[in-house]
Design a protein around this nucleic acid. Structure first.
Length: 703
DNA sequence: ACCATTT
């Protein structure tokens, strides 16, 4: 069960990351039409300079009336030495010229953890019930009927903000206004040109790639010097770019089940080309209602085709209503993990395309410019993880005010603490009255709050019993001694076919994967502490068969589809029966057989018994130890070679094939255990080449 | 407490 209660009792607000940032830096998102930057174009992301400028309010006179620029007459202002920071307290990482890796643990307690000042904004408990819980005023945004038509539906005034063409080119595209900081003619030589001081910040080589080149952080001006093809983007992210062999066009039979559901012919034909002609039960049940515009709650077993259940009616509905205008997002699909978002996006791609619509994946860990440019062009379907979407909304790059359909995949998970806040924030920006589709293999009361707030008159379809007890799945709970855990893990994981090993923590994933390799089982970890490129390489290797064993946190528990996973091994028991169902669902997909093995230490026995029963599985824990025939004959374990896997093989998987080295860089990028992420150039000082003042500031942080 | 979810 989710931790959400449906009682309406005030819930303790959790810190979201954005709130943490806010607490540290002050509010980062002025609301539309207020705040110091109200007059600024709302859809253009901030630049760093612009923000501070805007805070000062509008300039009263034009440049000419004001005379020559003051700020560049240095002699008048000797106290201001913007480029010599040694005498100032160290502030942001960017200005220091080096950033520490984002390793939470080594920063010391955060201000909001120290408890040394009152938590004002974020402690839900002392704020009293939220307005939407009090029920003492009408919910305005979500009850469409009493508001009359939306302005953008009436068509009685020009659409100002979203019709790009009428506005002419964006200011940052025109290049016709003076660039403030870099218009140098009237300023005389810059300090860094005079050569009378050590150059600290502008020696590019010492600084590593610029943020806008790295693509791992905000776009200032989207990097228009290059455009990204989808293929280039996939390559850069370590994703497979193999184009699946396209099947020949197929006649759509009169008995085609998807045609019978009322889906448009191009969609039906495209599905038939891939041999998809008979809807699964969940699709059969939900597609007609979704096509009719109803809000739908859909529950079908893992691997039962939920993506098409919402994807097909979504695409059909959107195609019937035209195409996205520039800057417009017509539908959003929210997904809990990046990999699942990628999978959903890939699955819908040919279907979106065949209807002449546009779609884009917006998720963290990927470069901003392609996502921002796609949003500028307009999207019929936006597949997104919550964090990056919120980020792009905050930057003004994404506008949800014309979203017609919103989908929550893995809806119960998205309604849990930790996700709920972000999801609410996003759904609050979607106009009421549109269609909502919520899907998951486990839909429980935890989603009640979301349903009450965002859905109207939903129809529920539950096509399968909520149980992991599938005919084709064998379940084993092995009661083992802690000292045998490592060996038994290796023996079970060493089965033929692909194995997914689930652990509770990121560190545990790294550790178990290493232990498996040491014992001769080729395994790699997958968790949120890796860079997205590493995550993609590992998952791609697993899908393509170069990696037989994947050791994952629950990042891989939901939705991820890989063929021929013969075993799911739970080294750490799942947190609840829903997680048991989702983890189990990685095997026995599409009618294949599968085995689910859960290791339980003595103190976990009772918890496991209860949990398995809740999951609807009829198994009793069985005591076992290495050498027990049950392990080999019953579970299918095989003793591994014991000869350690060469670490180079592992590194090639995670880092890709070594590329030609440039410059005097030694050793190339190494695998960074989690905590050093995002390929951010993080090299030892000796690799950077020690020179000049750079080193003084570095030492303070390296020691 | 930890797993996800932006940098």
């Amino acid at each position: 069960m989710s931790a959400q209660s449906s009682s309406g009792a005030p819930k303790k607000a959790r810190w979201s990351t954005s709130k943490k940032v806010e607490a540290r830096r002050g509010p980062s998102k002025p609301h539309r039409g207020q705040g110091p930057t109200a007059g600024r174009d709302e859809r253009r992301p901030y630049t760093r300079d612009e923000r501070s400028y805007a805070d000062r309010g509008p300039r009263s006179e034009s440049r000419d009336e004001r005379g020559p620029r003051r700020e560049f007459n240095r002699d008048e202002r000797p106290e201001r030495r913007p480029f010599n920071r040694d005498d100032r307290p160290q502030r942001g990482g960017f200005d220091r010229g080096e950033r520490r890796p984002f390793d939470r643990d080594d920063r010391g307690p955060r201000s909001y953890d120290r408890g040394d000042r009152p938590q004002r904004r974020v402690d839900g408990d002392d704020r009293g019930p939220r307005s939407y819980d009090r029920g003492d005023r009408p919910q305005r945004r979500f009850d469409r009927d009493d508001r009359g038509q939306r302005s953008y539906d009436r068509g009685d005034r020009p659409q100002r903000r979203f019709d790009r063409d009428e506005r002419g080119p964006r200011s940052y595209e025109r290049g016709d206004r003076p660039q403030r900081r870099f218009g140098r003619d009237d300023r005389g030589p810059r300090s860094y040109d005079r050569g009378d001081r050590p150059q600290r910040r502008f020696d590019r080589d010492e600084r590593g790639p610029r943020s806008y080149d790295r693509g791992d952080r905000g776009y200032q001006r989207a990097d228009r010097s290059r455009t990204w093809t989808d293929r280039e983007e996939r390559e850069a992210m370590g994703l497979s770019v193999d184009v699946p062999a396209e099947a020949a066009p197929v006649e759509v039979g009169a008995d085609n089940g998807f045609a019978a559901l009322g889906l448009p012919t191009p969609l039906v034909e495209r599905l038939a080309r891939d041999g998809i002609t008979t809807p699964f039960p969940i699709q059969q049940a939900t597609i007609p209602d979704a096509l009719a515009g109803r809000d739908v709650l859909g529950r079908g077993q893992t691997g039962s085709g939920k993506t098409l259940s919402f994807g097909l009616p979504l695409i059909a509905t959107l195609a019937a209503g035209g195409k996205a205008a520039p800057g417009v997002v017509r539908s959003i699909i929210l997904v809990p993990t990046r990999e699942l978002a990628q999978q959903v996006s890939d699955a819908l791609q040919p279907l979106v395309h065949v209807m002449g619509l546009r779609h884009k994946l917006v998720a963290g860990g990927m470069p901003y410019p392609p996502q921002i440019m796609a949003l500028e062009k307009g999207l019929d379907v936006l597949v997104a993880t919550p964090g990056r979407l919120k980020d792009l909304i905050d930057r003004g790059a994404a506008d949800l005010s014309q979203v017609e359909v919103a989908v929550l995949d893995e809806a119960d998970h998205m309604a849990e603490m930790g996700f709920l806040e972000a999801i609410s924030e996003i759904l609050d920006l979607v106009p009421g009255g549109g269609q909502r589709l919520l899907f998951s293999a486990t839909l429980d009361r935890g989603i009640d709050t979301v349903v009450e707030r965002y859905l109207s008159d939903p129809v529920t379809h539950e096509t399968d019993p909520e149980t992991a007890s599938v005919e084709t799945m064998d379940h084993h709970v092995l009661l083992i001694d802690p000292m045998h855990k490592k060996v038994i893990t290796a023996e079970v994981a060493n089965r033929t076919g692909r194995t997914v090993v689930f652990v509770r923590t990121k560190l545990g994933a790294d550790r178990v994967a290493l232990q498996l390799r040491e014992q001769g089982v080729f395994a790699a970890a997958l968790h949120g502490g890796l860079s997205q490129v590493q995550r993609n390489r590992v998952l791609t290797g697993f899908k393509e068969g170069t990696l037989p064993v994947l050791v994952a946190t629950d990042v891989a528990a939901r939705g991820i589809h890989v063929d021929d996973v013969s075993v799911v091994l739970q080294v750490d028991p799942p947190a609840d029966h829903k997680d048991y169902l989702h983890r189990s669902g990685r095997t026995a997909r599409a009618g294949e057989r599968g085995t689910v093995v859960t290791l339980a230490l003595p103190h976990q026995r009772r918890q496991m018994e209860r949990l398995v029963e809740q999951a609807g599985v009829d198994v009793k824990p069985v005591r076992t130890a290495p050498g027990d025939p049950l392990l080999y004959d019953g579970v299918g374990a095989r003793t591994p070679s014991g000869e350690a896997i060469e670490e180079g093989r592992y590194r090639r998987l995670v880092e890709g094939e070594p590329r030609p080295q440039r410059g005097h860089r030694r050793g190339g990028a190494r695998y960074q255990p989690h905590g050093r992420r995002n390929e951010r150039s993080f090299r030892g000082r000796e690799d950077r080449g020690d020179r000049g003042g750079r080193d003084r500031s570095a030492r303070r942080y390296d020691d």
